[in-house]
Design a protein around this nucleic acid. Sequence first.
DNA 1: TCTGGGGTCCTAGGACCC
DNA 2: TCTGGGGTCCTAGGACCC
Length: 433
Amino acid sequence: MDYSKEPHGVFFLIDNKSFYASVEATMRGLNPLKELLVVMSEADNTNGGLVLATSPMAKKIFHLQANVSRQRNLPQDPRLIVVPPRMNLYIKRNLQINNIFREFAAECDVWPYSIDESIIDMTKSWRLFGDSPRAVARLIQKTVRHRLGLYTTVGIGDNPVQAKIALDIYAKHDPELLGEIHYETVPEKIWTIANMTDVWSIAKRTEKRLNRLGIHNMRELALTNPFYLKQELGLIGEQIFAIAWGIDRTRLADNIAPKSHSIGNSQVLPRDYFDKNEIETVIKEMGQQVASRLRHHHKQTSCLYLSVTYAYAARVEGERGGFSVAGNLNYTDNDQEISELLTYLFESQWQGQPVRNLAVYSSKLISKTAQQLDFFTPVKQQCQEEDKLAIIDEIRSRYGFQSLVYANSLLKGGTAIHRATLVGGHNGGNAYE
DNA sequence: TCTGGGGTCCTAGGACCC
DNA sequence: TCTGGGGTCCTAGGACCC
């Protein structure tokens, strides 16, 4: 493989070791790597408790490998500290960590990827801070540890995908929490990965399809004809072939840049819902929440998507366990218009099955520059409606969502009030210390 | 996994157009 | 109106990630 024309840079992929659990440990004056601690959400719909994060030592001692597990899987051991999540605090820490990264690279070269991972393009700046990329990575780790008490894990690569694999496969098990992959070390570092599903973008289904083609590891993948892979797996085939060779031609500015394609919410209901009115109450609430988020981002949507999953008891083998439908409408961020279309979509498909899971997404978004008036409603009325929603948003941002709810949320089945203070479905806690 | 939540991207097949 | 064909857009579903 000739790598000479491939982009060569210095990329760091940094994540926080057991992020939520580590933050909680530091808040208690404990060492994140030594304590036995789990963060467990006990929201209504978690069915007894959902473990969101497990400290490294708890994973080791109690063999808790899976990231997400249930309360029933937890050992009854007095040494184990179980704490509720504080999502707002984790968001705040994430911002602080990224601000530290911005001391080591330009603003435009730091790309937050998730609540506990960021990609940093260090190509232009690493020489300012040390003799080798590895030394600079150590310095960043020490800085974060010193200021916030948190341990970070760093994958280093000549491009983002090498850094990502270095992080996932090597850094997490390295005593210094560092991993490196470069073009020259691809056969040694990537082809030897025992389990293909450990590689980013390959999960169970893709592994199965590869197995059917006689491919059982990364080396075999790398040595397969790429045209054959493309023919059998489509674009995914090309992509994972490139990954097997450590090749990544994406330019972060084009690909990672936040370009919001959709805004939506989903929830598992706290119990099975049988009644049409109850289900529609929640659908309307979710529509209002999506509308409110659209307004907050100054966006409007022209396409709504509703997904309904039936209660387990209503599933029939061989039949679909729910439905999803999409519908178009004129660009809007209006509660009423959004709720109406969602209700219509629901009624167009629902045939009385009990429901357990609902999702509402808005897509085909545009930035809102001015209010779009329609031809059929008096202008004054449209402006008043707009003003009313702005006031609702203002009151809610000052006094909380539950300070002002539609009467339907007080009806049986509504979940909005209960969920109002949750962040990502979990307890927000308080960001202030 | 008898159910967490918020996303992105890809694709097969149908509708529609010229 | 017992077979055109190519292109584009849309929908619904699948797969994956953190």
